[in-house]
């Protein structure tokens, strides 16, 4: 049987004496959408940052198409990053650049595209996420939270990456705007045929975006399965989390 598109095997990561990831094992198949759920401080963001090369795990293996990526540095890492797209929690738009330059950043810097050509693609991508060309020349500071997420999504999909990561895509948005963003993510990913990993604690978002769902608790994956089977998981951690109950095996650190 072929190895999944992305594989994480026994990933460990500590910060000083704090052992955050204690052997994460999970995989996602090509063109599939994996959603990692879990409470605050469970290790979701650290897992994502390890895959993106922003943090280096002390132990374990992360493979993309069978290629080990934990030891990539310099141009090899840049090349791998060229296959990735990322929507950050706060969108992480560059304040010093206009909206279209933000969207076109990966095309101009990563793919060395000419600005004129990149601008046309950026405006197309903005249209795909429901934003008009009149926003292209304004500063990100002038955008609302929902608009910033849309611009962040346009930036993530502009270079047409084969793998896209979404970090808490609906956090800080009202439920309707959250649903709009979820739909845009599903549409964009379908159009690109990309493999995606999303981290969230929003169950509505997880059900809408995910083909598969994995739950992380205290630095370990405690359950992983198809999204439509999560309600019948019979896993006490998953049950407590998806129903938002205070009572259960998940300890809340106050």
């Amino acid at each position: 049987m072929a190895e999944p598109h992305i594989v994480l095997e026994n990933i460990h990561k500590s910060f000083g004496s704090k052992h955050v990831l204690k052997g994460v094992n999970v995989g996602v198949g090509k063109g599939r959408s994996l959603v990692v759920i879990g409470g605050s401080g469970s290790g979701k963001s650290v897992t994502l940052k390890c895959i993106l090369g922003l943090l280096h795990p002390e132990k374990g293996s992360i493979r993309v198409d069978g290629q080990e990526i934990t030891d990539l540095r310099g141009s090899a890492l840049d090349q791998m990053m060229g296959r990735f797209g990322m929507l950050f929690q706060g969108a992480a738009l560059f304040d010093s650049l206009t909206v279209w330059r933000n969207v076109a950043f990966g095309l101009i810097q990563g793919k060395k595209m000419k600005p004129g050509e990149a601008r046309a693609i950026a405006i197309d991508k903005l249209a795909e996420v429901g934003l008009g060309p009149e926003l292209a020349d304004i500063s990100p500071a002038e955008l609302s939270g929902g608009m910033r997420k849309r611009v962040g999504l346009a930036r993530a999909i502009a270079p047409e990456p084969e793998i896209i990561f979404f970090d808490e895509p609906t956090t800080g948005l009202d439920p309707i705007m959250g649903d709009v963003i979820n739909n845009l993510i599903v549409d964009s990913v379908k159009r690109l045929g990309a493999t995606t990993i999303t981290i969230t604690h929003d169950m509505a978002s997880a059900r809408k975006i995910g083909d598969d769902i994995a739950m992380i608790y205290k630095g370990k994956i405690v359950w992983c399965g198809p999204a439509n089977e999560i309600d019948q998981s019979n896993n006490p951690y998953v049950d407590q989390f998806i129903h938002g109950r205070e009572e259960g095996p998940i300890e809340i650190e106050l």
Partner: peptide
């Protein structure tokens, strides 16, 4: 510092741009 705490420096890395160089 603001770029760091708002993840803009991480975003540069994910867009194949070395933050040291840029």
């Amino acid at each position: 510092g603001t770029m760091r705490v708002t993840e803009q420096i991480d975003a540069l890395t994910t867009l194949s741009t070395n933050p040291f160089k840029y």
